[in-house]
């Protein structure tokens, strides 16, 4: 399925899809388990107005990995429209989730179902899962005990587990120790748009989990509201960002998807570059001597 240039907003059409910030500097690929992602933005596929809008947003995001959910087939539906017909399976690695599960046993079943579907589709995402075991339907915060149990069981069954969790540093460490291939703390509750609520905790998680294992993948998953949130996540030293609602419910999802791509890359580059320290007072950029003034300091 191709997208007509005329259907795209001008800012996107001029650049023919994903906007690259520069020809010279590119973010390196991200390795998670056996997977290598060329782009550090993982995009969700839920909550778009239409499959067509989702498809165009995926194109402009620059991402090559999308999450997807497993649900009961509507019997005798007859519409014949399935989301996979709108995702280029040659480009995108699918990352099936266990969203909506509230206990380890159900999450494990859900993960196995996702694996079975992706095997049939011959998609490389068949061996991994975004594990999400919720503990509360209002906050959508995860249940750490059930998440830990499910991580152990799925890792033992050969899954590469990318585990959604809260920003609790101790739970994050326990999930890594249980065999998670990546730990994915929430910036703030799913779909809240509150951004990075506790950057200090995210920094502690980064320090702790990467101390003797600098390549261990950490992803900020959930809470991102706009591009600057994604940039902050990357500036905190995270390896990637997983988001959905911030794009899907933006007024213009197609352009916001491109903004997220740029923000993730900008944040990675800024982290890599080493930001300046913060000072209470100013520090002049231009020389202080030779000014054509006899003003006394």
């Amino acid at each position: 399925m191709t997208i007509e240039q005329s259907q795209l907003p001008a800012v996107v059409a001029e650049n023919e899809g994903a906007v690259q910030p520069t020809q010279a500097i590119r973010t390196p690929p991200l390795k998670i388990g056996s997977h290598t992602l060329s782009n550090r933005l993982i995009l969700g596929t839920g909550r778009y107005d239409s499959f067509e809008t989702m498809q165009r947003s995926l194109q402009t995001s620059g991402s090559d990995c999308v999450t997807i959910a497993v649900r009961q087939e509507k019997l005798h539906d007859g519409s014949g429209r399935n989301i996979i017909d709108f995702i280029n399976l040659d480009r995108f690695t699918l990352l099936p989730n266990t969203a909506g599960c509230y206990d380890a046993a159900t999450a494990v079943r859900c993960a196995k179902m996702g694996r079975e579907i992706l095997k049939r589709l011959e998609n490389p995402g068949a061996n991994w899962v975004k594990l999400e075991v919720l503990g509360d339907s209002r906050s959508l915060l995860p249940d750490p005990i059930e998440s830990l149990k499910a991580t152990e069981r799925l890792a033992a069954d050969g899954f590469e587990v990318l585990c959604y969790t809260s920003d609790d540093p101790i739970v994050a460490r326990r999930l890594k120790d249980a065999g998670a291939a990546a730990v994915m703390p929430a910036g703030s509750p799913i779909g809240s748009g509150l951004g990075i609520a506790n950057p200090n905790h995210l920094s502690i998680i980064r320090d702790d989990l990467k101390r003797d294992d600098p390549d261990f993948p950490l992803i900020v998953d959930a809470g991102v509201g706009t591009a600057s949130d994604a940039a902050i996540a990357m500036e905190l030293g995270y390896d990637g960002v997983l988001l959905n609602t911030a794009v899907a419910h933006a007024k213009d999802p197609i352009v916001m998807a491109s903004a997220m791509n740029l923000a993730v890359q900008a944040g990675w580059m800024a982290r890599k570059s080493g930001r300046i320290g913060k000072s209470r007072y100013g520090s002049a950029s231009s020389p202080e001597i030779g000014v054509i003034s006899d003003r006394q300091k």
Binding site: T67, I68, A69, V70, Q72, L94
Partner: peptide, 10 residues
């Protein structure tokens, strides 16, 4: 039996 498919999700 459960018959499941893929739908959009985050």
């Amino acid at each position: 039996l459960e018959v499941v498919t893929l739908v959009g999700g985050g």
